[in-house]
């Protein structure tokens, strides 16, 4: 028996919004410690790693480990049926063929149950990739809205954005047929609010170029967290991390572009 309950179904809606442009289907690995998803996008350029800890749920029970293949589009359709204030419960039996989504209104007067068929994910099985816990040359924390804005604005200029980080701050630049764009963010000396701060931790400067298409998918996680953390080292994938309240995080790994 697997059962996981979240008082705020809105969190799950936001998580789906954060992955639905990158993944068509994914395996949800459920265990005692929580729910984990790791999947590469179809082009194998980026990796999504979602972690929801069992202690972050309002109720959590997982008698035996389960791997449930789910269509992200179908899940999105079902989550659309949840009211903004509804509680959501995910429920499955051992060896499930289906998963139940149960939505309950705050006054408990409405109870809706949706059943979704699981997918047999028999293609290349990734297992859980040991993503390296390396120390990165630069780690930048900045407002997620600002990051979304910069990615959107600079995408108008070209297909990729160059991130150059030094101890002064981070510089984003893009260039294309009609011109070029640069946005520099200085480290904030003393931001009034923590969520508005720009913080740079630097061992050595980095300069990396990334595809706008993927960055613009990652920023869909913006509503999950006021701050985004970008971890960078030269010639290794960017890690773009959004915390999901007290329950977990979503990390996107993106391979840098290289000159031909």
């Amino acid at each position: 028996m697997f059962e996981a309950r979240l008082v705020q179904s809105a969190i799950l809606k936001k998580v789906l919004d954060a992955i639905k442009d990158l993944l068509t289907e994914a395996t949800f690995e459920c265990s005692d410690s929580g729910i984990q998803v790791q999947a590469m996008d179809n082009a194998h350029v980026s990796l999504v790693s979602l972690n929801l800890r069992s202690d972050g749920f309002d109720k959590y029970r997982c008698d035996r480990n389960l791997s449930m293949g789910m269509s992200i589009a179908s899940m999105t359709k079902i989550l659309r049926c949840a009211g903004a204030e509804d509680t959501v419960t995910l429920r499955a039996v051992d060896n499930p063929e289906n998963i139940m989504f149960i939505f309950e209104s705050p006054n408990k007067e409405k109870l809706a149950e949706y059943e979704m068929k699981l997918i047999n994910m028999d293609q290349e099985h990734l297992g859980i990739i040991k993503t390296k816990e390396t120390s990165y040359s630069c780690v930048v924390k900045m407002p997620s809205q600002e990051f979304s804005r910069i990615c959107r604005d600079l995408s108008q200029f070209g297909e990729s954005i160059t991130f150059a980080c030094s101890k002064e701050g981070i510089k984003f630049s893009a260039s294309g047929d009609f011109g070029q764009a640069t946005v520099k963010l200085a480290q904030t000396a003393d931001a009034d609010k923590e969520e508005e701060a720009v913080l740079v931790t630097m061992q050595e400067p980095v300069k990396l170029t990334f595809s706008c298409r993927y960055l613009n998918c990652f920023v869909k996680a913006g509503p999950l967290c006021a701050q985004v953390q970008l971890s960078m080292s030269n010639d290794v994938p960017l890690v773009c991390e959004y915390k999901i309240g007290d329950i977990g995080h979503i990390r996107y790994y993106l391979a840098p572009k290289i000159d031909d």
Binding site: A43, H44, V45, I129, E159, V236, A255, P256, I258, D259
Partner: peptide, 14 residues
């Protein structure tokens, strides 16, 4: 234009 690398080069041993 710079070439897009694949994440599997970094993480997955096939």
């Amino acid at each position: 234009a710079p070439k897009q690398r694949r994440i599997r080069e970094f993480f997955v041993k096939w």
